[in-house]
Design a protein around this nucleic acid. Structure first.
Length: 290
DNA sequence: TAAAATACCTGCAGGC
DNA sequence: TGCCTGCAGGTATTTT
């Protein structure tokens, strides 16, 4: 599933593949792919046609392409959702089954394709803001951002009246973390997902943040985590981090630290994976206990 | 106002 | 073989 490392791999691919090129034509094959573009698919295509891409940028799990401004600066925003892919491929390559948007370029070279099986992802065009496009103003910086404020994060996390995993998944508090890396970081830090955030000591919060950074960095180095080929780079290559996962998806298998079988609990309509020995449940759980 | 719950969506695995 | 159910989960919206 695309979380920060996977999205960053895609961003780098876009930087190599489409920056500096001019969009010649846009075709939207599924309206849901542009549902966050209020003016609709026709407007989406019309606004983008003729635009030159200046840069490929990211905040958390969102990507955007800065466009050369005619009057006001614009950004082409993308989110991969659960199953989205942004592929840079030769025009002659066969259409993917779930091709949602196609971008052709004026140089006649490789085209950009947004492919998304479950259509949780999507693209839109919005005004570029001073730091991030206007619709992304609520997304916090991610832990790999040089301007991420550790002290502010620790304070904000400890002010939350909820479980720590819920807090980690809240993109307004810290971005880029999804279900996989939340579970991995919590295991590494020896913390249970339902531990109340306001019960964390500052040192606990800092240790958790350090583990988040460690797991995100390692996953990025491995090219991300891939399951059933739903996540791939712009060249269609799968990531290798899955083989390094410690708990996610490993229910029943021994914890690599203590040998206790990993357990899976329902959590927020999905799953949490923990080692019941390394990650003791809290005495006063917040919510979402399964 | 914050936190929790729900809707959205498709493909696959497993049971029968 | 074919139908049904559960599951995967990030974000926006709705409810509590």
């Amino acid at each position: 599933m695309p979380e920060l490392p996977e999205v960053e791999v895609v961003r780098r691919g876009l930087e190599r593949g489409v920056v500096g090129r001019t969009i010649a034509a846009v075709t939207v094959y599924h309206p849901r792919a542009v549902r966050r573009h209020p003016a609709g698919a026709a407007d989406f295509a019309a606004v983008l046609t003729g635009q030159t891409i200046l840069a490929a940028r990211r905040r958390g799990k969102y990507l955007w392409l800065d466009l050369a401004p005619a009057e006001q600066p614009l950004a082409l925003i993308g989110h991969l959702g659960m199953s989205g892919q942004l592929l840079v491929v030769p025009p002659s390559s066969p259409d993917q089954t779930h091709l949602r948007i196609r971008f052709r370029f004026s140089d006649g070279g490789r085209e950009l394709r947004f492919v998304d099986q479950r259509t949780f992802g999507g693209m839109s065009v919005a005004p570029a803001g001073p730091q991030v496009p206007v619709p992304l103003a609520h997304i916090a910086r991610d832990p790999l951002d040089p301007r991420f404020d550790d002290d502010a994060f620790v304070a904000a996390l400890r002010a939350r009246r909820t479980g720590i995993k819920r807090a980690l998944l809240d993109q307004r508090l810290v971005s880029g973390i999804g279900n996989i890396y939340a579970d991995e970081a919590l295991w590494a830090a020896g913390l249970h997902y339902d531990r109340p955030a306001d019960s964390l000591r500052p040192a606990d919060a800092r240790r958790l943040l350090a583990e988040v950074r460690t797991v995100l960095t390692a996953a990025l180095a491995a090219g991300g985590t891939s399951f059933d080929r739903l996540y791939v780079s712009t060249e269609g290559v799968s990531g290798l981090f899955e083989r390094e996962l410690a708990v996610y998806g490993l229910a029943g298998q021994p914890c690599r630290r203590c040998g206790t079988p990993i357990r899976r609990d329902p959590f927020m309509n999905r799953s949490s994976f923990t080692c019941p020995r390394c990650q003791r449940p809290p005495r006063r759980p917040r919510a979402g206990v399964g």
